[in-house]
Amino acid sequence: MKQIFEALEKDARLTPEQISAMTGIPAAEVKKTIKKAERDRAILKYKTIINWAKLGEEEVWALVEVKVVPQRGVGFDAIAERIYRFPQARSVYLASGAYDLAILVAGKTMQEIAVFVSEKLAPLETVQGTVTHFILKKYKEDGEILQGGEGIKRLPVTP
């Protein structure tokens, strides 16, 4: 079964028939397995990794470190939930070390992100402090190298 998900993780557009050909598992069973994983939220969603800069679209990203005071009974979960409900927070992680929450924030401009941090994040009651790192350049995203890559260098016919 793992093979089905490995194939899908590489290429979300594969049809059950194609996956069946790759794994030898009957297409009907592939379909059923995927449906179940979607229901169980083992598969969360199908998306495309887009290099927006290539399309001439500007997008600004920042990594925001947030230090918070954990609350009795709910720990970090309650504050994390308040934060992750903002659509600007694209990813939210609880991290060990010098700060508690790591948040990836996306916006159209630096101003937009600055406003989000200063007006939405920082004033939250349990937030003690934030540090914002603007992303200057993306090299690799979700395992994909954005620029260059290695290309094929082998000869077309070899022993």
Binding site: I152, R154, L155, P156, V157, T158, P159
Partner: peptide
């Protein structure tokens, strides 16, 4: 041309 004539991995 699509070559199936190689004798080595396509991985680096």
């Amino acid at each position: 041309v699509i070559s199936l004539g190689v004798g080595e991995p396509d991985f680096v």
